[in-house]
Design a protein around this nucleic acid. Structure first.
Length: 805
RNA sequence: GGGCGAGUGGCGGAAUUGGCAGACGCGCAGGAUUCAGGUUCCUGUGAUCGCAAGAUCGUGGGGGUUCAAGUCCCCCCUCGCCCACCA
């Protein structure tokens, strides 16, 4: 009987579904294991990245299930967002129609992979019963002052008349039409994630089962800097605040710089000699396109005509405007200390400004700012102190003199959540001429996204053109009012969807607290490293918010995170636009889902990028064919009693159980697969020479148990054929017997001066003395020692003996 | 510019602790089966020298520690990813 993967895979996919093998609930005495693969955007077809992700996820689901856990593995759809809208714009089909068709297609493809999901909990972010709770979350944040509206610079395409996300700006050009992107200020909604910056940073330490790489990226993104903020007076009246991480260098301040957008600028330049050039500079900075900013290597700026007074010594220094100071960081104003900051140094050199070093550079240091450690110089009462002491001293001086204090600044900005786009969750706010911004009452949720005809962006949300949607009455005063027409960023959906799976059909709350109380936090979260910063940070933020509300029992959503590498072909990421995709659905047909899954597991370390090899899947398919043949032996079994050969094979089988178990636990799937290949090849050899049926059955049983999370269809079919039971998926994971697993003989390596000169098999419990004796008895070793004096013998039984002569 | 990774055969990769470098797979070569191709099976496959036994070299480059280094330390080169005028 040949290996008919199509029939076998269809059969078992049907069985798992009709049996409800992986449908779970919280009322269970087993320990829970909540396992999630990042929910996909429904593009319409799965690609190898999905296959890789779901293969890892499903391997864990099945493995943990067999290990006795109550495993929840759900699936859903990240179905709102720009991609769907752009696809709709180019195809002319409404995003809802398109998206729902895509979901159906992808769902059937995912099912062909054989992954076991609890489909009863399926969710999709574009469904009103899901985005209702987006809106509810927004209102909860709004009530607590954590959602607010403010003017903010955005990327603007002047041709398409639309706001662009950063990802849509490619080398400073609009992704769609290639026009240069400019900056523009617009009213936007924000979530105040900065309020949580401290906690988001501090709790990274608790995420011990996250990759260090991701933890570092999050730390850098939050970007905590300690320093001081202090007031600098302007000569002739007025003042501004400056933030610095190097308050110890304050005596070296020889100029100040304000960002072009700084509110004080206008007052400083009015009537000054340099007013016109300052105005030109500011206008240019405002107009600056991304492309110009990137091309700008040199620091530029302009003198305001005004001077600042250094608070420590009363010295007057010029105030400049320069776009290397950003309004969005710190206070938008700096004290410039060219001696210890390279950017200030470059600027000072260009404009001929004095440079004073206040940290003694090492001998031979020439030119350039010195940012390292050294004794403080030219700094009056700070002289001689090291950096830390000088910082401490100057900060207390600032406090004593009432001009400033030590402070902490974060790089993290508030989260801009509004999109002037159609395909998203409407923001549940009403604008009333009398009452201002009024939240839509919870009872009126969801604010339904209407079906409209024209969803092309035109400088404002397409919803703004729908009078039926826009015009409403104020929930407070009943007067005429208009609705907010912006929609929410899809990152809002993905920041809490994993709380919804445990109680996916709740229509009176986001979830009933008792459900996530059982399931949360996720024991495993798997997805691409491209989400290492934004998605994971937002999800952590919202989880902390829900915790503060008393909705969540956990402060961190994801206990263990795994980020997989990309699939590449000929050095490039596989993508439709590059035309280098290998369609998984074709491979389901030609090689089968099991062969494809196994190839993904075998390709290389799951964290690394993996290069697709056209022939690789032929190899795993061949392996499965060989396994299949093993189960279909028709030969005679021998009636002989158990001997050395049987014990060898059983020992290997138990060592394989140990290896595969340990490899799965440490996510080394690529080394678990070869272990199974070795075992199956040995079993094949064993069958060719007087096999005993008992040994064969036992080794096959173990092999199938180990294969079942990797190639579930084949393993289940063979399990049933072999008469081992009806449903492999619910069998317990095998234990190994250390006594059986122990090797009786090992290879002893004999070295002379660290070079391998001989090797032979010895008993595993050989002593040092026996090993040395055995080694010295070797003619080859005697030849290499050649009568010389043996100065030293290093003996590491049973693996190694080294003679030093 | 900053941060984090990674460099091992023709290719993907293996080598929990410093202890046989190259497991396993792909590819390639030879052979068997076959009318032939494909499939399947067997054998070989880091480089150099050698008929062979075997020897020497070999994990990006250079130095070091050690009886012993892919693995530890120092310097350098290359590539990848993330962040980037963050004061």
């Amino acid at each position: 009987m040949s290996y008919d993967h199509k029939a076998i895979e269809a059969k078992w996919q049907g069985r798992w579904e009709s049996d409800g093998t992986f449908y779970v609930n919280a009322d269970d005495s087993r320990p829970k294991f909540y396992n999630v693969c990042m929910y996909p955007y429904p593009s319409g077809a799965i690609h190898q990245g999905h296959v890789r992700n779901y293969t890892y996820g499903d391997l864990l689901t099945r493995y943990k299930r067999m290990k006795g856990f109550n495993v929840l593995s759900p699936m859903g759809w990240d179905s709102f967002g720009l991609n769907a809208e752009n696809a709709a714009i180019s195809s002319g089909i409404h995003p809802r129609i398109n998206t729902e068709a895509n979901i159906e297609t992808m769902k059937s493809q995912i099912k062909q992979l054989g992954s076991m999901y609890d489909w009863s909990r399926e969710l999709a972010s574009h469904h009103p019963d899901f985005y209702k709770w987006d809106q509810w979350l927004f209102l909860e944040l709004f009530e607590r002052g954590l959602a607010y509206k403010a003017e903010a610079p955005v990327n603007w395409c002047p041709k398409d008349q639309t706001v662009l996300a950063n990802e849509q700006v490619i080398d400073g050009l609009c992704e769609r039409c290639g026009t240069e992107v400019v900056h523009k200020d617009l009213e936007q909604w924000f979530f105040k994630i900065t309020e949580y910056a401290d906690r988001l940073l501090a709790d990274i330490d608790k995420l011990e089962q996250w990759p260090d790489r991701v933890r570092t990226m999050q730390r850098n993104w939050i970007g905590r800097s300690e320093g001081a903020q202090f007031t600098i007076d302007v000569d002739g009246g007025g003042s501004f605040d400056a933030f610095t991480t190097r308050p110890d260098t304050i005596f070296g301040m020889t100029f100040c710089v304000l960002a072009p957008e700084h509110p004080l600028v206008e007052r400083l330049i009015v009537g000054s000699e340099t007013e016109q050039s300052a105005r030109d500079y500011i206008a240019k900075a405002n107009r600056a396109t991304e492309i110009e900013r990137l091309a700008e290597g040199e620091k530029t700026g302009v003198f305001t005509g005004a001077h600042a007074i250094n608070p420590v010594n009363g010295r007057k220094v010029p105030i400049y405007i320069a776009d290397y100071v950003l309004m969005s960081y710190g206070t938008g104003a700096i004290m410039a200390v060219p001696g210890q900051d390279q950017r200030d140094w470059d600027f000072a050199e260009k404009y001929g400004i004095e440079i004073i070093r206040t940290v003694q550079p090492p001998d031979g240091w020439e030119g350039e700012a010195y940012t390292g450690e050294g004794p403080t110089i030219n700094s009056d009462f700070l002289d001689g102190l090291d950096m830390a002491a000088a910082k401490e001293r100057i900060i207390s001086w600032m406090v004593e003199n009432g001009i400033g204090d030590g402070t902490v600044n974060f790089r993290l900005r508030d989260w801009l959540v509004s999109r002037q786009r159609y395909w998203g969750s409407p923001i549940p706010i009403v604008n009333c001429a009398n009452c201002g911004l009024v939240p839509v009452p919870e009872a009126d949720l969801p604010v339904l996204l209407p079906d409209i005809e024209d969803y092309l962006p035109k400088g404002r949300s397409p919803l703004a053109a729908d009078d039926d949607f826009v015009n409403t009455t104020c929930p407070q005063c009943d007067g005429p009012a208009t609705r907010e027409t912006d929609t929410l960023d899809t990152f809002v959906d993905s920041s809490w969807y994993f709380f919804r799976y445990p109680d996916a059909h709740n229509d009176h709350a986001m979830f009933d607290k008792s459900q996530p109380a059982y399931w949360m936090p996720l024991d495993q979260y798997i997805g691409g490293v491209e989400h290492a910063i934004l998605h994971l940070l937002y999800a952590r933020f919202i989880t902390k918010f829900l915790y503060d509300m008393g909705m969540s029992t956990v402060e961190e959503p994801f206990s263990r995170l795994f980020t997989q590498g990309m699939i590449t072909l000929e050095g490039a990421k596989m993508s439709k636009s590059k035309g280098n995709v290998v369609d998984p659905v074709d491979l389901f047909k030609s090689h089968g889902a099991d062969a494809l899954r196994l190839y993904h597991l075998f390709m290389g370390p799951p964290t690394d990028d993996a290069a697709w090899n056209e022939n690789g899947i032929d190899g795993t398919r061949r392996f499965l064919e060989r396994v299949w043949k093993i189960a279909n032996v028709e030969g005679e079994f021998s009636a002989r009693s158990e001997d050395e050969k049987d014990r060898e094979l059983l020992g290997l089988a138990h060592r394989t159980v140990r290896k595969v178990t340990e490899d799965i636990d440490r996510f080394h799937f690529n080394t678990a697969v070869p272990a199974l290949m070795v075992l199956s090849n040995e079993l094949g050899d064993y069958l060719s020479d007087e096999p005993r049926e008992e040994t064969y059955k036992e080794v096959l049983r173990l092999l199938l148990l180990l294969l079942s999370p990797m190639t579930p269809h084949l393993a289940h079919e063979m399990w049933e054929m072999g008469g081992f039971g009806e449903m492999l998926a619910i069998e317990p994971w095998p234990e190994w017997d250390e006594d059986l697993a122990r090797e009786e003989t090992v290879t002893l390596v004999v070295q002379v001066n660290g070079k391998v000169r001989d090797r032979f098999d010895v008993s595993a419990d050989i002593t040092s003395e026996q090993a040395e004796e055995r080694a010295l008895a070797s003619d080859r070793i005697q030849e290499w020692i050649d009568g010389q004096e043996v100065k030293r013998v290093i003996s590491r039984p049973p693996h190694l003996v080294n003679f030093v002569v």
